[in-house]
Amino acid sequence: MINNVERAVRTRHIKNSVFKWGVIAFTFIAVLPLIFILYYLVQKGVTSITWAFLTHMPKPVGETGGGILNAIVGSAIIIFMACIIAIPFSIAIGVYLSEFPKAGIANWARLSIDMLQGVPSIVIGIVIYEWVVKPMGGFSAISGSIALAIMMIPPIAKATEETLKRVPAGLKEASFSLGASYYQTTMRALLPAAMSGILSGVILSIARISGETAPLLFTSFGNPYLSANITKPMSSIPLLIFNYAISPYDEWQKLAWGASLVLIIFIFLLNIITKIAERKWKVQY
């Protein structure tokens, strides 16, 4: 009898440690490629990152040196415009979904958002090509921004909805009880209280789209020169990486590695900013 109990306890212990080490091993295996990619990127790219690399234009084939200034400026402009387009729409959708979760359109909106999240980015690029690029008569930075904005909507709308749902009902009641209208309650009480969640949704979506190449191929196209005209083709970091990485020239491939590292550092910084923002604007209810 006692033997049986002892044996049961021992088996349980063994199972326990097997499970524990299994979980650790799988996590390690999953993280390993990530670390490897980062290591490889740093190793390849770190030599090309210099001040000149960030502030100079690419040089013609055959000449050494040159930078990616046009791509950095292009990415900044395209992402900035994408934010301006996406943020109001996404927040509006999020507010609607959390306020009227059972309304007729809400179910359709939620389904569309889930679907949109799963649509391959190249498909979005093609659709925007048909809808915007063709009618406009040529590639343009703004069409790239629209494509990226569409990709930004699902994560921001979801983040807004989820955060607003967690804002306690008491806040809403308090606002209404002071004679605030529905609009005032949303703008002055609910959205500020949900700020941290919405903001982290926005930043993470920026991180997500800043590396997107496919939707930009058919839209903003790329541009070897520095341009700030949003109705004309514009370069961006992912496009530059794509173009230079498939080129046969060592010099250009080196630039691509450097640009990849710049992009990764940018995304890394965004993640850190998210963490800080979440902590700083965290709302205790």
Binding site: G170, L171, E173, S175, S177, L178, P192, A193, V283, Q284
Partner: peptide
């Protein structure tokens, strides 16, 4: 005016 059961100041 109304005062609620649980104090519910705005996070402001």
């Amino acid at each position: 005016g109304m005062v609620f059961q649980k104090p519910n100041p705005f996070p402001k």
